[in-house]
C-alpha cells in the first residue's frame, strides 16, 4: 500500500473529503458535489463553453484577484494606521523596513489588474451576447459590482497619504460638489432652502458626505479606510455570491441558445 493510499484510506482524510480520490467517473462527480468550494461549479460543462478563447476566464480572474486583495489587504492592515500621524510613515516602513512589504506592491498591482479584469470580463460578456435573456439581471448585478470595484480602488488610492493619493482623491471628489441639487455648486442646489436658509452648503452637500469634511483631511482618511476595508468588501462579497448563484440559476455559463 502506497503512502498516498494510506493517507486517503485514513479516518481523518475520509472525515474531511467523505469519498475516495477522484480517479473514476463516479468520484469525479462526487468530488464536485460534496466539496464546499467546488460545489460552486456544476458537475459537467460544455466543452466549448470553457474553451479559453471563448470564455477568456476574466470573471474567474476578477474573483481570484478579489481574494488576493482580501488576503494582502488583511496583512497590510496589521501594519497600517489610518491617521495623519502614521499613515504615510507606515507606508514608508512597508517600503523600507517590513519583511512583507511586497504585500503593498501585490495589493496595488492586483487592484489595477482587478479593474482591468472586470472590464475585460464585461467586454467578453457583451461580445458573446451573454447578457441577453435569461441573464439580464445578472448583468445588472455585474454593473453594480463594476461600480463597487472602482469605488474600492478609489477609496484605497487615498490610504498611502502621499501627494499622489490626496490630490487624486481631491480631483475625483471635487465632481461631487457639482451634483445636481445635492452639491453646493450644483444646479438646483439654491432651490433647496427653507426660509432663506440653504440646506445645501459646503458643509452638508454630497461631497461633504463623501469626504466627512470640507477638504480631504483626517476625517476623509478614516472614512475611506472603513469603506475600503470593511463596508464595500462586505457588500461586494454578498453581490459576488448572488452573481455566482445566478449564473447557475440562469442556465450556467454562456452557451449558444
Amino acid at each position: 500500500m502506497s503512502i498516498g493510499d494510506y493517507i486517503r484510506d485514513s479516518q481523518i482524510w475520509k472525515s474531511i473529503f467523505r469519498h475516495p480520490a477522484p480517479h473514476d467517473r463516479r468520484n469525479r462527480i462526487v468530488v464536485v458535489l460534496t466539496n464546499f468550494f467546488l460545489h460552486l461549479h456544476p458537475v459537467s460543462v460544455k466543452q466549448q463553453g470553457i474553451a479559453l478563447s471563448y470564455t477568456w476566464c476574466m470573471g474567474g480572474v476578477t474573483f481570484f484577484l478579489f481574494l488576493v486583495e482580501t488576503i494582502t489587504g488583511v496583512l497590510l492592515m496589521f501594519y497600517y494606521r489610518p491617521t495623519l500621524e502614521w499613515a504615510f510613515n507606515d507606508i514608508l516602513a512597508l517600503r523600507d523596513v517590513s519583511t512583507l512589504g511586497i504585500m503593498r506592491e501585490i495589493h496595488r498591482w492586483g487592484a489595477h489588474a482587478m479593474v482591468i479584469a472586470v472590464w475585460l470580463h464585461m467586454y467578453r460578456v457583451f461580445l458573446t451576447g451573454s447578457y441577453k435573456p435569461p441573464r439580464e439581471f445578472n448583468w445588472v448585478v455585474g454593473v453594480i459590482l463594476l461600480v463597487l470595484t472602482l469605488l474600492l480602488s478609489f477609496t484605497g488610492y487615498l490610504l498611502p497619504w502621499d501627494q499622489l493619493a490626496v490630490w487624486a482623491i481631491t480631483v475625483g471628489s471635487n465632481m461631487a460638489r457639482a451634483t445636481p441639487f445635492l452639491g453646493y455648486e450644483g444646479p438646483g442646489a439654491q432651490l433647496l432652502n427653507i426660509g432663506g436658509y440653504d440646506l445645501i452648503t459646503s458643509g452638508s452637500d454630497a461631497r461633504f458626505l463623501l469626504l466627512g469634511s470640507r477638504f480631504v483631511g483626517e476625517a476623509t482618511l478614516n472614512r475611506f479606510y472603513i469603506l475600503h476595508c470593511v463596508a464595500i468588501p462586505l457588500v461586494v462579497a454578498l453581490l459576488i455570491a448572488i452573481h455566482f448563484w445566478r449564473i447557475r440559476k440562469d442556465g450556467g455559463i454562456s452557451q449558444p441558445l
Binding site: P22, I29, V32, L38, Q48, G49, I50, G110, A113, P256
Partner: peptide
C-alpha cells in the same frame, strides 16, 4: 461554439485550468 461541444466533467477539465490560472496569476503578481 456548436462544434465538438460534448459535455465534460468539471473535475478535471475545469478545475485544473482554474488552478493553473491561479498559479500563473500569482507568479505574475509577485
Amino acid at each position: 461554439e456548436r462544434e465538438n461541444n460534448e459535455s465534460v466533467l468539471v473535475w478535471p477539465d475545469l478545475v485544473y485550468p482554474e488552478l493553473i490560472c491561479m498559479i500563473v496569476l500569482t507568479v505574475i503578481l509577485v
